[in-house]
Write a protein that binds this DNA or RNA. Structure first.
Lengths: 126, 126, 126, 126
DNA sequence: GTGGTCTAGACCACA
DNA sequence: GTGGTCTAGACCACA
């Protein structure tokens, strides 16, 4: 389901956050689903419970999951969180495109990069 | 010429590297131009000289500037520098696209963003 | 009648306590009414019986309900219950006012909020 | 400047967050001021550095402070964060007033509570 | 020095 | 069991 890449330089808590967002985007997880408990997830990933706790906290602040004390953590029903995530993704991409344009990258090359990545299906961090 | 945004979270040395690359891409700096000395630049930016030193070192490794011991640092006149700039632009864009894909942005939407920005011709935060 | 909002972050037992208090204040429940048994209530709310038990215990301590062993739990008919309800309302409001003051809200603005709500006559989330 | 009340039941990180917000609201801290380092603050308050780190992180997410790696933490220039805090304070107070109204608290009594607390100057958590 | 990340492990309230 | 808070202490990148 998820795996931490310790070589990537990306903080583990961030990989968990991004990974769960992606799993939801792909439909592997749906609204209302129960996530593994903080401790269970930590065990599976070979990570300290605190690290998972941090990831879950961030996801909760984003409105993607909610945690019920004593019950567990669940994917939010509402899609507000998901929408916010998508919006921020668009904004980040926009900034990167502006930068690339300013640095002299042609539109053709920019499009090639996108096509290339999407044709691979984003298999990078899997 | 350059200004460090301490609120951005981007390391200062990185802002200097990216900033100088951008200034060259925009034509504000040309091949052969002499850069301010490490100390002068550090003074202007309100940054520790070590930080500027680090930025210059990275730019040198990228082939964008070269340092002549005792004379100062200069922008390379070869095309290597230009190529390095383009490569870094591509890399940044790739990262952003990967992120967007992982967050569930469709290829169509990604392309729309690019088309939109290129049709406007850029020059956003300049 | 009652419903637990697991996303709210408010403990389930607390939602039951507050919910029953509110139902009585609104007149949906009257003095002497028999409450559902612990098990029945737990079933309806999708909650552990221990949680309902805890809520009933707290309500009993506040004098809002009383339990007749083997017969069930009933809403008190004395005025003690009413007084307890008012006291808890005052306490909650006090906390919110303290918070607001500490966060820099002026007295004038606080008063405006109260006047505004009372002039509308309440009944917001009911 | 700040002191943790371990009896209050309020998490230490939360007391730090609220305390710094209050100090800014009172004008004891101004935009651009440097906060004590995570370690220094932890030492002063008799708290673990992680706890201060968490508080600073929350304040940063609220836009009230920003942290510059290697330099320190500073109060944000913009007042956006402060405004957001005030807005949320108003909203919380509104909810509490609605609840109080629904529970049967009279407008007079509500106003008395406010006057009382503001006349004391919110000396509660000091 | 300064913030950021992480581990190990304890203790608490809630369900 | 489950999430939330906290301590103690390590290690890293940045300035």
């Amino acid at each position: 389901m998820l795996k931490i890449d310790w070589q990537s330089g990306v903080p583990a808590y961030d990989q968990i956050v991004q990974g769960l967002i992606k799993l939801k985007a792909l439909g592997a997880l749906s609204s209302g689903d129960k996530l593994p408990s903080v401790r269970a997830m930590a065990g599976k990933l070979g990570v300290n419970p605190n690290t998972v706790q941090k990831a879950y906290l961030i996801l909760e602040e984003k409105g993607i999951i909610y945690s019920a004390l004593g019950k567990g953590s669940f994917l939010s029903d509402s899609d507000e969180g998901t929408k916010a995530v998508l919006d921020s993704a668009k904004e980040s991409l926009s900034k990167a495109v502006y930068e690339a344009l300013n640095l002299g990258l042609s539109q053709l090359e920019a499009q090639k990069i996108i096509d290339n990545i999407y044709s691979k299906g984003g298999k990078k961090n899997d």
